[in-house]
Design a protein around this nucleic acid. Structure first.
Lengths: 161, 161
DNA sequence: CGCTGCTGATTGCGCGCACAACGACTTGCG
DNA sequence: CGCAAGTCGTTGTGCGCGCAATCAGCAGCG
């Protein structure tokens, strides 16, 4: 920790550093915005809603505990409660009681949700490929993966899992 | 564009692709959260507020038009109006009329804002280095920069600048 | 069994943001 | 000049999220 007051000239970011850092912030923002708009336009689905459906579809029996779902999509428990409320209102998923633990609840995909996802997934994957994955060679993708692993290890990942 | 309905088995992401893509989402989220918490704890400053101060400090005469500031920090004009409101209330910046264009307004750093930033910048830069920049070699940073440039070119950058 | 402590999900509340509408002003064109 | 179209900043409104408090139920202990 540098003491304050004795370093009037602190080391700023070099152009390379700036490019790598701000570029990431801007690229991520641009990607999220573009993908969200795309999904919204094509299927009236927000990105967060899509992620819920996707995790459910990939899960065993197409259902997941609220808690696990929340941490998977990086959302608070209360945030997930309301997101699931909305999706349930739209008929894309349903709440199912958990027999093992009466406190718990499952969110479970409905046929309508499965169908919705099937259509949306094509759109979303195409977008991710077109705006991100296709821009890199397999080697670059591996390098990117390495980068994220390092960052995630360093930040401590934030929470559970 | 693949037609919908004739590809029941659509090509999902490979493990490499998944690692590169989801890793980025998670890494970015973890970084933003950690840096924001750090800045908040050390100086009671949100990341968005910090960015405003930083852009102002780096600008000529320590002032910027609201419009330019908004696009620099990736915020809507209305969002910036209220953010500047808060910072003005805290005495970190002031609004200055624009003589060239009577519609416009400048946000201008106050001495208090300059001092606040000076302290916060050390914290923030240290955090960015520790959790991000220091994890990579100069060559890797350049590669990352290249990646972002490609993404930003592809997404069309969203808006101005 | 009854008590304490913990976890899962929900609800009340406040905040920060985007969108749309508005007023003030500038710019361009006849 | 005078009007239309566009831009800048602000304000009204609604939404999605996190935090803290809450309730229900589980687990461990005497």
């Amino acid at each position: 920790m540098a003491t304050i007051g004795d370093t009037p000239e602190l080391r700023l970011l070099s152009p390379q550093e700036l490019r790598a850092w701000r570029g990431m912030l801007r690229a991520q923002a641009a990607l999220a915005k573009a993908l969200d708009a795309q999904l919204e336009a094509a299927h009236g689905l927000q990105l967060s809603s899509y992620e819920v459906l996707m995790y459910l579809a990939d899960a065993e029996d197409e259902r997941m505990r609220m808690c696990d779902l929340a941490s998977s999509i990086l959302l608070s428990r209360s945030g997930l409660t309301r997101l699931v409320d909305r999706l349930q209102r739209e008929g894309l998923l349903e709440r199912v009681a958990c027999s093992d633990d009466a406190r718990g609840a499952f969110a479970k995909l409905t046929p309508a949700g499965r169908e919705k996802l099937r259509a949306a997934r094509a759109t979303h994957l195409a977008g991710v490929r077109a705006m991100f994955l296709d821009l890199f060679t397999p080697a670059e993708l591996d390098q990117l993966g390495d980068c994220w692993d390092r960052v995630l290890a360093k930040t401590g990942w934030g929470c559970c899992r």
